[in-house]
């Protein structure tokens, strides 16, 4: 408190023990576009809502190829998301140079988690972005979510961004481990629609046990108003 009055270092902990800056960063993520990830026995998909842009403006890319076998998406400040995507891409190539093998999803996630954690212990602005990473490695198809605090979760259903409370509920209710790819895509779109009331502008990426390549699915439909 004293240091605050001196107007130099910002505070880290609030009186309740919460990392105040990190909580604000999480709030920034909650303002981002709705983004989901669903993993089944056979495949995993990432889906992100593309916010409608004004005419003559191409929608931003939201699903990112990280490496042949890895993909990611994010919600929050797009500049911060891009920084994390770049970090993931660089780490994936570093791993190939060091080990002569593709990075596993857990290591990719933990590296990013450690990177984000650095922003929680110094007097800097924590990045206002969460990412969902998915990919195929020797342990199968895996999916992780990483938050601004550096916390990461492994799991089969994730939702971040605006309305994520509603969309995660849709995923939890509709999830089965043996969903087909079409059903998974449908579920992801439903989840996004529940939060945005619009499922036309969704970008998708998929990775499966059989192909072991992460690929974007181009399903961005032209909005009906423009037809």
């Amino acid at each position: 408190m004293e240091s605050q009055q001196l107007g130099r270092t910002p505070y880290f902990y609030g009186p309740e023990g919460a990392l105040v800056q990190v909580d604000f960063a999480l709030e920034a993520v909650n303002r981002g576009s709705t983004t989901v990830g669903i993993r089944t026995n056979e495949h995993a998909i990432l889906a992100s809502y593309l916010k409608p842009t004004r005419p003559l403006l191409d929608p931003a890319e939201k699903i990112y190829q990280i490496d042949q076998h890895l993909g990611a998406t994010g919600a929050g400040y797009i500049g911060d998301v891009m920084k994390l995507i770049q970090e993931l891409r660089v780490n994936s190539q570093k791993h190939r140079l060091t080990f002569d093998s593709p990075i596993d999803v857990k290591t990719a996630s933990e590296d990013l988690s450690a990177y984000l954690h650095q922003y929680t212990i110094y007097a800097v602005r924590p990045l206002g972005a969460s990412v969902i990473i998915t990919g195929k490695d020797p342990t199968g198809v895996q999916m992780y979510q990483i938050d601004p605090s550096g916390t990461y979760f492994r799991g089969s259903g994730f939702s971040i961004g605006a309305g994520s409370d509603r969309s995660i509920e849709i995923i939890q209710n509709g999830y089965r481990p043996n969903l087909s790819l079409e059903e998974t895509v449908k579920l992801a779109k439903e989840a996004i629609k529940s939060a945005t009331k619009d499922d036309n502008q969704v970008e998708l990426g998929v990775v499966s046990n059989s192909s072991s390549r992460f690929e974007k699915i181009n399903q961005v439909q032209v909005p009906s108003s423009a037809q």
Partner: peptide
């Protein structure tokens, strides 16, 4: 360290690559 982190061991080639590096 790597096998603790990622949960499965380094392959023979990965191990060799570390020595080569």
């Amino acid at each position: 360290l790597v096998s603790l982190q990622r949960g499965y061991p380094l392959s023979v080639r990965e191990t060799t690559k570390l020595i080569a590096n």
